[in-house]
């Protein structure tokens, strides 16, 4: 392959950015869901939309 360093740098950069964004979003979602579950547990079972998640 010609120009291999440039190609590898491009694909590597894309991978790093995709992984950072998606893992960050997944962790944030998980944390928020867990905190919400803890907060909503004692009182309401019927009204919360998130309890069905």
């Amino acid at each position: 392959m010609t120009h291999l360093p440039y190609i590898l740098a491009s694909y590597g950069l894309a991978t790093v950015i995709a992984l950072t964004l998606s893992i960050g979003a997944a962790l944030r979602l998980k944390k928020a869901r867990m905190r919400l579950a803890v907060l909503e547990r004692p009182s309401d079972r019927t009204t919360g939309a998130t309890s069905s998640l």
């Binding site: 979602l29 905190r35 919400l36 907060l39």
Partner: peptide, 13 residues
């Protein structure tokens, strides 16, 4: 979508 869902949950928290 995942980030917006998290943001909605955070605002509810």
């Amino acid at each position: 979508l995942a980030r917006t869902r998290a943001a909605v949950m955070e605002s509810r928290i």
